[in-house]
């Protein structure tokens, strides 16, 4: 697989795994309006994933979005570890979302000038969507942080629990660097400053504390996942795997 395909597949896998997580909230959210909002975000992100996966499949030649989604094993998935973390309570989902939304806005606002027209087009559409997602997640971070003592305690717990996965967002391997050098991709290291600026402001506004210890969990981009991805994929892939070759 060449660097372009790997780069695009990583973005597709992020969206696929995150939308899979968000889809599980349907009908179980704290209020009807939140059910609508999470479904909306999930659908947007699934759309982004499908665009990237389709592009990756075109590069590979003998695949499509579904063979990539349903026929690869855990070790072949290249999503960030953050997005495969379980939904937990609403605070956990919200913090996971906020971290990703801040990253998405920084990423897509740079990716719109990609030398690759397909990536630039996907990014342009995605940017509008993720700005709205960030508004939602940041708004809720503040409501939970500044709400009740219980909500502040819970969402601070979510921040503390998910923090260790945030280092991976800014790691650049040889594929990221090759794509950045070609003007096609964004070097993830460039995203750290804008992300930190947003997250510091958001966390402060929410009256919460930014964890100080260094984040360290990595490996998702190399297919080294947490134990959560396996069961999630088993559930997601069951039908095409049970009935190989069928159309749906």
């Amino acid at each position: 697989m060449d660097s372009l395909t790997i780069y695009v597949l990583r973005l597709g896998d992020n969206g696929l795994v995150l939308s899979q997580r968000l889809g599980a909230w349907c009908g179980h959210a704290p209020e009807l309006e939140i059910d609508l909002a999470l479904a909306n975000i999930g659908l947007d992100i699934l759309g982004q994933a499908r665009n990237f996966l389709t592009y990756a499949a075109q590069q590979l030649g003998d695949q499509d979005e579904d063979s990539l989604a349903f026929q690869r094993d855990e070790r072949q998935f290249s999503n960030l570890l953050l997005v495969e973390q379980p939904n937990g309570h609403f605070g956990d989902t919200l913090v996971r979302q906020y971290f990703i939304d801040a990253w998405h806005v920084a990423l897509y606002s740079r990716l719109i000038t990609s030398q690759d027209p397909q990536i630039a087009a996907i990014a342009a559409k995605a940017l509008k969507e993720v700005k709205y997602h960030l508004r939602f997640s940041r708004g809720w971070l503040e409501r939970l942080g500044q709400g009740t003592a219980l909500s502040a305690q819970k969402v601070q717990g979510s921040l503390d629990e998910l923090w260790r996965f945030t280092a991976e967002l800014f790691e650049a391997d040889e594929h990221d660097q090759a794509m950045a050098a070609a003007g096609i991709g964004v070097d993830p290291r460039q995203l750290e400053a804008p992300w930190r600026e947003e997250v510091t402001a958001g966390v402060n506004q929410a009256g919460l504390t930014l964890p100080q210890e260094a984040a360290y969990r990595r490996g998702g981009k190399q297919g080294l996942h947490t134990e959560y991805l396996g069961p999630m994929l088993a559930e997601m892939q069951i039908l095409p795997r049970s009935y190989p070759g069928q159309q749906w």
Binding site: E31, L32, E33, L36, A37, N40, Y132, R135, F136, G139, R143
Partner: peptide, 20 residues
Amino acid sequence: SLHAADDQMALENARDAYTR
């Protein structure tokens, strides 16, 4: 109509529910 805890949420909920 819809229910929301604050004005920003009301605007976002309205956008999600009525401008899909």
